[in-house]
């Protein structure tokens, strides 16, 4: 087949152009995730602080306080970085933004309802939170064809299933921080490193 030969209504050049466009969009989508690496680190640290507090001095008010502080910090840092407009500059970026916005909303509603009704101690409750975060990672990984994020999704889901088989608070105090460290903080740092590297490359170019 020559370059200009039409195949099913599309020439080879046209197909190559389309593939190139899709690759550019996927790369731009990944960039919009790496630019938000700090959010993963922030929530990982906030959640580990919450579980450490819970471990040392259990109280009903720990999670409402910690999560409110997390949201305040999140909005403050985002306002300082002024990145909301550039984050969704392309279709993939907007898709990734949609995935995380909805995950955030769903998790907030779920967590708030569970805390309000004093059902946050159930293993299936904590497992569901892990599965929700894993679901967002998995969708994003599939959209962006990003294996590392796919592994992070697998990690969250594995943590969710492990939570079902936990038999004591002690096990929760082990699984929860591990999940936050590997699935949030490490992934966030990796994303920030990628963002930094692409930023440096851009500057050099």
């Amino acid at each position: 087949m020559t370059n200009s030969e039409p195949d099913n209504g599309k020439s080879r050049d046209e197909l190559l152009q389309r593939i190139e466009l899709m690759e550019t969009m996927i790369a731009a989508g990944r960039r919009s995730t790496t630019r938000c690496g700090w959010i993963f680190v922030l929530w990982g640290v906030v959640d580990i602080a919450g579980i450490a507090w819970e471990w040392s001095r259990p109280s009903y008010w720990i999670w409402p306080t910690v999560l409110t502080a997390g949201f305040l910090l999140f909005f403050l840092i985002r306002a300082l970085k002024r990145e909301s407009s550039s984050r969704c500059a392309n279709i993939e970026g907007r898709t990734v933004n949609a995935i995380w916005s909805m995950m955030g909303l769903a998790t907030t509603l779920y967590v708030a309802a569970g805390i309000y009704r004093h059902l946050a101690w159930q293993y299936s409750y904590i497992a569901a939170i892990f599965m929700l975060v894993g679901l967002a990672h998995a969708i994003s990984a599939m959209v962006l064809r990003w294996r590392v994020q796919g592994m992070v999704a697998g990690l969250w889901w594995a943590g969710g299933i492990a939570m079902f088989f936990a038999h004591s608070d002690k096990e929760i105090f082990v699984i929860f921080p591990l999940e936050m460290f590997f699935g949030m903080i490490l992934f966030g740092l990796y994303a920030m490193w990628l963002d930094n590297r692409s930023g440096l490359k851009g500057e050099r170019a």
Binding site: A106, G114, L119, Q122, Y123, S124, A127, A128, M131
Partner: peptide, 19 residues
């Protein structure tokens, strides 16, 4: 996971599926 660990009846479990 919930069925194998006998957590399938929890209110949090049903809520999670809807979520």
């Amino acid at each position: 996971g919930a069925i194998l660990s006998h957590h399938a009846g929890d209110p949090a479990y049903v809520a999670a599926i809807l979520f």
